[in-house]
Computed example of a mutant assay.
Amino acid sequence: MKRALVILMLLASVLAAPVLAVTPSEMLSDPALEARARDISKGLRCLVCRNENIDESNADLAADLRVLVRERLVAGDSDEAVVGYIVGRYGEYVLLKPTATGANLALWLAGPAMLILGGLIGWRFVRSRRNASAESERALSPEEEVQLKEILDR
């Protein structure tokens, strides 16, 4: 029984860790601003944890970014202005969903283009193999039949 309780407590603490990322001292007193800050934070990547948003990260840099987002909101910036400010300081890598413009457009299109190119190469390969097997299955000429019969008779 104690073992199950310990496992349950460990599991609860692991699952609750992201909830504890935003500390009460960071939270804004205005619920509307806090909700906006949470929405913005969920779209920003923690630069320490890589593929975790700053809202769920316990890293010090993520805490600094959360505070910065809240400061900009309190200063009266719009959501887009706050994200633009963060991107201006840290680069577009900070966005969990980067924009599909400029140099990023090539990255967005490279995957589907490679898939289509690979499909075309595969289709041509299968087609050429089918044609080659059809040619190899042709009937023997009369001369080849005579030669084959001589070989089999020996």
Rank of each mutant, 00 (worst) to 15 (best):
D153F: 15
A113M: 09
P98I: 06
S141F: 07
L140T: 02
D153P: 00
R45S: 12
L140M: 10
N131M: 07
A81K: 11
K2L: 05
L47W: 01
L120A: 13
L44E: 04
A35S: 13
V74S: 03
L44R: 01
I151V: 12
S136W: 10
L105R: 15
K42N: 05
V67A: 09
V67C: 04
V48R: 13
S141R: 09
D79S: 08
R36Q: 13
M27E: 04
A4Y: 07
A35G: 07
A106M: 14
V48N: 10
G76I: 06
N53P: 06
I151E: 14
K149W: 05
L152V: 08
L11Q: 13
A37R: 05
G76K: 07
M114P: 00
E92T: 08
D55S: 12
A139P: 09
D60I: 11
G76A: 11
G119N: 04
S13A: 15
W123Q: 07
M1R: 10
C49I: 06
V87D: 03
E145K: 14
I121V: 15
L44P: 05
I7G: 03
E52N: 11
K2I: 02
V69F: 02
M1V: 07
N51I: 10
K149Q: 11
L109H: 08
R50Y: 14
P112F: 05
K149I: 06
D55F: 06
R38K: 15
A4E: 06
L73W: 04
N53K: 06
S141T: 12
P98H: 09
L107A: 15
I121M: 08
A16L: 09
L117C: 08
E71A: 13
S41D: 14
A81H: 08
D77Y: 01
E80V: 09
R36V: 03
T99Q: 11
L28N: 10
R66C: 01
D60F: 12
D153K: 14
R130P: 00
L96F: 10
L148S: 13
S136H: 11
L20M: 06
A139G: 11
W123N: 04
S41E: 15
S128W: 08
R70H: 13
A21C: 07
P112G: 01
N53G: 05
S136Y: 11
S25N: 01
V48L: 07
V87W: 01
V48F: 08
E26M: 06
L65H: 00
I116Y: 07
K42F: 03
D153W: 10
A17P: 01
L152G: 01
N131K: 05
L120K: 09
T99D: 12
C46P: 01
K97Y: 10
D55I: 00
P24E: 05
A63Y: 02
G122F: 08
